[in-house]
Amino acid sequence: MFLTPAQLHRIALLARIAVSPEEARAVTDRLNQVLGLIDQLQAVDTRGIEPMSHPLDTQQAVQQRLRADAVTEPDLRAEIQALAPAVEQGLYLVPKVIE
């Protein structure tokens, strides 16, 4: 598969990464080099093979551990919000959201 500049535009939009028109060509070329590498997978016969989403699933039954329903986290707002670029009245500020 081969990425076009139009597809790059859409992917960059989905990923929320600005790609300037000047860089678009070079970025597309680089990505196509990588896509060339991963396209080898298309030729592999994987009929009947289960996808492996957890690295140890061949070894043991992998199963989510459950946490008891208890409040364990204290209020660390002051410390956590000291990290934020813009805060007011305990709220994180972002450019206006229009629904």
Binding site: A86, E88, Q89, G90, L91, Y92, L93, V94, P95, K96, V97, E99
Partner: peptide
């Protein structure tokens, strides 16, 4: 969406 210096506040 109340106005916080023209911005939206997130809780």
């Amino acid at each position: 969406h109340e106005d916080f210096q023209g911005m939206t506040g997130i809780d």
